[in-house]
């Protein structure tokens, strides 16, 4: 592979990383606070993408198109969490039982969208702006603004988590929910907030994903989920900075692999990284042992 192609794919990788990072930050926040590995996350990303697609289709303007995705993501996630997940959490409550519920939910969402969308793949046109050369890399205005959005999200998340009382409460919750409750952390409100923020990030990730890939169908989110989860696990549950760093690794690796082996191998690269993480076992809360099994939804 020539070095130009390598550099080019690294440039693409940075854009992909921005997209992955937004989803991974939402995923890791959700996982860290609720301890629920929500496999319907990818489907919520799809919902976000479709929400923006519809807004664009109705010519609601750029602002509405952008806002539609996180709004839909937050709404759907919140409603799912407060109804379905809460219902099952009250009944059995183990982390794995609830994962099964999120899986079934994802299946329902995916095929409902499929049915509504007439199984079609939709084109999504988003002005990508002029091309810029920065150092050896080639970016478009759009891809740079995606990086900007990811950086903004990271900054906002870090500010909330580390500078506000809400952030302190969230971090306490993720470490020990029982103790946090005993210390007077308003559980219900904090968890609802988590669902809304992470849902909004899922929706945003969905939108950002399609501005990059330019097509969307019912399985788009699920296909993309592997990169998101790989980044979230690699970065350590509950750590936004970890998620962003891991997203860079995953994003660049997937684009380089795509440049070498064909675009359909880019997701496989994500899976490969995930497998590698599992084999090499870094220290994190991922490994079985004295981990908590209860979820707080």
């Amino acid at each position: 592979m020539s070095s130009t192609i390598l550099l080019q794919s690294i440039g693409f990788g940075i854009t992909t990383a921005a997209v992955v990072a937004i989803g991974a930050m939402g995923f890791t926040l959700q996982l860290g606070v609720t301890n629920l590995l929500n496999l319907s996350f990818g489907n919520v990303m799809t919902i976000g993408a479709f929400a923006s697609l519809i807004a664009e289709h109705w010519h609601l303007g750029l602002a509405a198109t952008i806002i539609a995705a996180p709004l839909a993501g937050a709404l759907v996630t919140f409603v799912l969490a407060r109804t379905l997940f809460a219902l099952f959490a009250r009944r059995q409550g183990g982390a794995f039982d609830l994962l099964m519920v999120t899986l079934a939910t994802g299946l329902i969402i995916q095929y409902t969208i499929d049915a509504l969308a007439h199984l079609q793949v939709f084109q999504f046109s988003f002005p990508s702006g002029s091309t810029l050369n920065i150092g050896p890399f080639v970016f478009t205005v759009l891809s740079l603004s995606l990086v900007g959005v990811a950086a903004l999200v990271l900054a906002a998340l870090l500010a909330v988590l580390h500078l506000t009382r809400i952030g302190k409460a969230l971090r306490a919750l993720s470490v020990d929910p029982k103790l946090a409750r005993a210390c007077g952390v308003p559980m219900r409100r904090m968890i609802n907030l988590t669902w809304i923020i992470s849902g909004a990030l899922a929706g945003l990730a969905g939108l950002v994903y399609v501005t990059n890939s330019l097509t969307v169908d019912a399985s788009a989110g699920l296909d993309f989920l592997v990169l998101v989860i790989a980044a979230a696990i690699l970065g350590g549950a509950g750590s936004p900075v970890g998620a962003v760093v891991a997203a860079l690794v995953v994003g660049i690796a997937s684009e380089v692999v795509a440049a070498v082996g064909g675009s359909y191998y880019s997701q496989a690269a994500g899976l490969g990284i995930l497998a590698l993480v599992l084999v090499l076992r870094p220290a994190s809360g991922v490994w079985s042992g004295p981990s908590r099994d209860e979820v707080t939804v």
Binding site: L37, L39, A95, F96, L99, L103, S219, L222, D223, L225, V226, I229, I233, Y264, Y265, Q267, A268, G270, L271, L274, A275, L278, V279, R281, V286, W287, S288, G289, S291
Partner: peptide, 25 residues
């Protein structure tokens, strides 16, 4: 690769994603 001492929910995620990716490839 997957049957290590991994939390069951993480294992489940890996299996699901493997299935999705395999069919894409």
């Amino acid at each position: 690769i997957t049957l290590r001492r991994l939390r069951r929910d993480y294992q489940a995620a890996v299996f699901l994603l493997a299935a999705v990716i395999a069919i894409d490839v």
